[in-house]
């Protein structure tokens, strides 16, 4: 049997971490797009759209991500598609991310004073124009820190995809533990790599928030 050095363990974990990063990026961008579409429904005039997004958010925020992964994995299979783990993982993570981003962004849009809506509509702007030229430019500034902060949750959420068999950092940790019988070292390294991925995001979210507050104080 081969002996694993610490470097072998770390090297293999880092190779697997690429998939954690890839899945995080795809889920975050996909979730952002779905979240933006939902946001238009959520803050739009249509009653049906509002109710739909409310139910959507309640469903995805009120159930475990792990269950959503299982349902995506086995649910997509009902349509006769042979579902690879990466597909189920991506679909579930995108939908889950969207549910949280839409609530974060709704708060940001609603923090824009009502007078801004009234002023822009008195200038004869339509809904999309109001959004494009008045509301979003201001709301986006406020939205950046909590959005970056939430990206940490997405990275950590990808760890659960190991349970439906997607091979990323957490799964590689399990496989390496079974091969080396050194769970303390392996999971220690796994935690360290996650920390190195997440901590810069957490920190930059805090820094951005502080910077933004300075801008606010100067108003």
């Amino acid at each position: 049997m081969n002996e694993f050095t610490d470097w072998d363990i770390l090297r293999n974990l880092l190779l697997a971490a690429r998939w954690t990063v890839a899945l995080s990026i795809v889920s975050f961008i996909g979730g952002g797009i779905v979240g933006a579409l939902l946001l238009l429904l959520r803050i739009g005039e249509g009653r049906a759209g509002q109710i739909f997004t409310k139910v959507y958010i309640e469903l995805f925020q009120g159930t475990p991500l792990l269950m959503q992964l299982f349902l995506a994995f086995f649910g997509l299979g009902l349509f006769g598609i042979d579902v690879p783990a990466w597909l189920a993982a991506t679909v579930a993570l995108i939908l889950w991310t969207a549910a949280f981003l839409v609530e974060i962004w709704r708060g940001c849009v609603e923090s824009i004073a009502k007078g801004q809506w009234e002023a822009s509509s008195s200038l004869g702007m339509g809904y999309l124009q109001q959004m494009r030229y008045v509301i979003l430019p201001q709301a986006l500034r406020i939205a950046v820190p909590p959005t970056v902060g939430f990206s940490v949750q997405v990275v950590k959420g990808t760890a659960l995809t190991s349970i439906i068999g997607f091979v990323e950092l957490a799964k590689a940790g399990t496989v390496l533990t079974n091969a080396t019988f050194q769970p303390f070292t392996v999971y220690g390294f796994v935690a360290l790599i996650y920390f190195c991925l997440c901590w810069p995001l957490s920190k930059s979210s805090q820094v951005l928030e502080r910077k933004l507050n300075v801008a606010h104080r100067n108003h």
Partner: peptide
């Protein structure tokens, strides 16, 4: 606080359950 908030719950669980016995 920073260590826990920046690592997945699943890994914390594995570390406690599988990792700590070696200590």
């Amino acid at each position: 606080v920073e260590m826990i908030r920046n690592t997945p719950f699943l890994i914390q669980l594995f570390f406690i359950f599988f990792g700590l016995p070696s200590l």
